[in-house]
Write a protein that binds this DNA or RNA. Structure first.
Lengths: 228, 228
DNA sequence: AATCGATTTTTGACTCATCAAACTTCCAAT
DNA sequence: ATTGGAAGTTTGATGAGTCAAAAATCGATT
C-alpha cells in the first residue's frame, strides 16, 4: 500500500483518539462523533471509512461504528508520535508558545519525514510526554497510558501534580498558562460546588483560582511527587 | 483570494526559478520547461497556468510561455523564503546533513506558518543565504541577486570563494561535501580541458579534485575574500 | 510559400475528498 | 407491536489536479 494521504492520517488519528476517549469499554466509534471531530458531514465520514476498511486499516460495522485494526492503530500512533514530538520541539527548541504549537504541529505532522522526527526525538532526549502531558508513542507505536484522575474526581485538599491537559484550544491554554496551571505544577482542590458549577483551586505561590467544571474535567492530576 | 494550495505554490516557485535561469533576456518560460520541472505532462501545465492567469498571478501567452506578475513574483519569493530558511534551520539547528535538507524543506515549506518562519528567521539572525548559497528573500519578497561566475568562466589560478551550488541533488551534494567543496571554501581552478570535459581544481588543504564540466557549471564563485 | 517535426493546446476521463439532500435503519417510548 | 425521531447511509454533484491521446499551431528548412 502506498503512503497514506494527510486525510487518511487524520481519519486514523481521530478514530484513535475517539477510541481512547470512549468511557464505555467498547472501542466502537460512531460515525457522528468521527464526522464532527473531523469537521465533515456524516456522509463523508461513512464514505471515507469504507475505503479505510478496504485498505484493512479499520473495521467498519454499518450503523454501529468503526474501530482501528492493528495496522490502523500502529499508523495512527505514529501520526500521534509525529504530532507530539513536533509540539515539544516547537516549544523547547524553537521557543514557541505552549498555546500555539498544536495548530502548527497539526500541519507539520504530515510533512515531516521519519528521519526528521527521529532526529527531533534524539535531540529532545526521547521524551515521554509532550507539552500538554500527552504521552508520546515510540517508533513502534507503543504508548504508555497512565490513568489519571480529573479535578472533578480527585481527592480534596490533597497536594497533586498537574499531569495533563486534554484540550488544545489556544485560548484555553493561554488562560492556563497565565494561571500557572501547566503540567508539573503542584496544586490542590479546595472545594467543589456543583450548584455553582465551579471548582476552587490553590496553585503554586498560594494562587487562588476558580474554574468551571467543564474546564476542571480537562485537567488531569497524578499522585503527589515522591518526597525529596 | 484564498490561500494558495501547495500545488499553486509549487507552480509559482518553478516559474520564478525558471525565469531566473533563463539566459536570454526574456522572462517568458515555455510550457515544456515548466512541465518537466514539475514532473507533469505539458497539458497539465497549460491547464494550471490558465487558472493561475485568471487569478492574476501570471501572464500567459499561448504558444509562447508564461511569466509571473508582480503579485505572483512576490508569492513565489515568499515560498522560496520559507524553503531556504527551513533548509538553513534544518542544518544549523536540527543538525541535518546539507545533502538531505532540500527534500525535507520541499514539503515543510507548505506546512510552516508565517509565524514559525519568522521565528526561525530571528533564531538564525536574519541570514542572507541558505546552506547552498542561495539568497533568502526578505518578508516583502525582495532578494539580492549577485551575479557570480561559474568554474567554467572564472579566471584560472586565482583564489576564489565558492559562493553557491546550483543543484540540489542529494548524491551530488554528498560528493561535494566529501570533497570539501562547500560554500565558503577557498578554491582555485588549475586547468580546464574541453576535450576531456573536465576541470582541475585545488581546494583547501591542497586537495586536488577533478570534476566534469557539467558539474563545474553548477559551482559559482565570488572574488577572493577581503584580506585580514 | 509549402511542409515536417517539435511544441503546445484541447478533449475526455479519472481519482480523491468533499457536500447537500434523499433515503434507510435503529431503538426507545408509547 | 408500532412508530417517530435520531443516527447513519446512499446518491448525485462539485472542484482540484492529473494523464493519455487527438488536434492545432509554430517555425525552421527547403
Amino acid at each position: 500500500m502506498a503512503l497514506p494521504s494527510s486525510t487518511v492520517e487524520n481519519y486514523l488519528k481521530a478514530i484513535y483518539q475517539a477510541e481512547m476517549a470512549q468511557e464505555d469499554g467498547t472501542r466502537l466509534v460512531p460515525m457522528g462523533r468521527l464526522a464532527s471531530a473531523l469537521h465533515v458531514v456524516p456522509g463523508t465520514a461513512t464514505t471515507m471509512v469504507k475505503t479505510l476498511a478496504e485498505s484493512g486499516l479499520v473495521r467498519y460495522e454499518p450503523y454501529a461504528g468503526v474501530r482501528l485494526t492493528a495496522a490502523g492503530q500502529k499508523l495512527a500512533a505514529l501520526v500521534l508520535r509525529r504530532h507530539r514530538l513536533m509540539e515539544l520541539f516547537l516549544v523547547e527548541v524553537v521557543g514557541m508558545s505552549w498555546a500555539d504549537v498544536h495548530d502548527e504541529a497539526e500541519r507539520l505532522e504530515h510533512a515531516a519525514s521519519d528521519r526528521l522526527i527521529d532526529r527531533i526525538d534524539e535531540m529532545l532526549g526521547r521524551p515521554a510526554v509532550d507539552p500538554h502531558g500527552d504521552p508520546i508513542p515510540d517508533q513502534d507505536g507503543a504508548m504508555a497510558t497512565p490513568r489519571y484522575q480529573t479535578l472533578l474526581t480527585c481527592p480534596i485538599d490533597t497536594a497533586l501534580v498537574l499531569a495533563r491537559v486534554t484540550d488544545q484550544d489556544t485560548d484555553f491554554l493561554r488562560f492556563l498558562e497565565q494561571s500557572h496551571l501547566t503540567p508539573g505544577e503542584v496544586i490542590r482542590v479546595e472545594s467543589r460546588d456543583a450548584a455553582a458549577d465551579h471548582v476552587l483551586l490553590r496553585g503554586a505561590g498560594d494562587r487562588s483560582i476558580v474554574i468551571g467544571m467543564r474546564a476542571a474535567a480537562k485537567l488531569l492530576v497524578a499522585p503527589p511527587p515522591p518526597p525529596g
